[in-house]
Design a protein around this nucleic acid. Sequence first.
DNA 1: CTCGTTACTTATCATTTGATAACAAAATAA
DNA 2: TTATTTTGTTATCAAATGATAAGTAACGAG
Lengths: 145, 145
Amino acid sequence: MNKSALFHQFVAFTATIHQVTHDLTQNVNTANITPLQYKILEYIKVSQPVTPTEISECQHMSLPNTSRELRKLLERQLIEKFNDTADRRKQYVRLSKEGEKMMEEAFACIEERFLQLIQHATQDDLKDIQHALTILEEKVLQQNG
Amino acid sequence: MNKSALFHQFVAFTATIHQVTHDLTQNVNTANITPLQYKILEYIKVSQPVTPTEISECQHMSLPNTSRELRKLLERQLIEKFNDTADRRKQYVRLSKEGEKMMEEAFACIEERFLQLIQHATQDDLKDIQHALTILEEKVLQQNG
DNA sequence: CTCGTTACTTATCATTTGATAACAAAATAA
DNA sequence: TTATTTTGTTATCAAATGATAAGTAACGAG
């Protein structure tokens, strides 16, 4: 098997994934937040509670900039902060009730679009897709993240 | 098969793909161009020759902003323009010799990192990966792009 | 030829994002 | 205790990106 050919297929594949992700998420109604703020909320949603430092590292942004964006999200009451009882320097961030609602609506919209993508898939197709995702996670992506 | 569960797996998968893409492409030596300029060059590289309008649509940016970025890339002699002989309004953009060199070096660096990702894969693993990519392209991604 | 459309450019402004310095408070190590 | 490190904030500046108005040139329909 030619590893170089596999690389080119992988590159084309990731480009398509990025394109599809864009299509799935564009114009999702998210109360006028910026793309960066959406990514932060998405990360909080799936990993909460998280610390600003974790957000900073995961989103590849500096802590001062993370702090700024969190302040904006806090002002818009989309997130909440609370302190670590053991280490009072640490903070934890989670979605507020309003933030949860917004993200759940966003995810519902994205899911609806995703379902249209696979609307013609048979039961066997779905199994194949699920298996393919698992294979790639295990054999290509696992050592990262 | 639960389509909603598949959706969640897909979302996690795309998040990981974005993460890995970031890791593969970060700090690739690309002569101080911006991320947007890199994406444009990447698109030109795999699709050349392309028109500014095509770049504009594919990268989801306005034509004026596309024109601005192309001017910067032209000034740095990373791309070349030439006219359509039939329709003199149209332009085509391709990489210059220098641009080709830069992108090939970038791709080589990324490929090297990718090969490390799959360094422990057996021949059977590689076949599985190749098959999984093909399945996803055919059954999820095909109707887009 | 005239008019509307297409392809693209230039100019300008607003917003978003990135980078960095300086600071404060709490934890930890010496 | 004192010094150092960790965690986070505020402030400021620069750069990248997005949005839009106005204009030019060429094409195509009538």
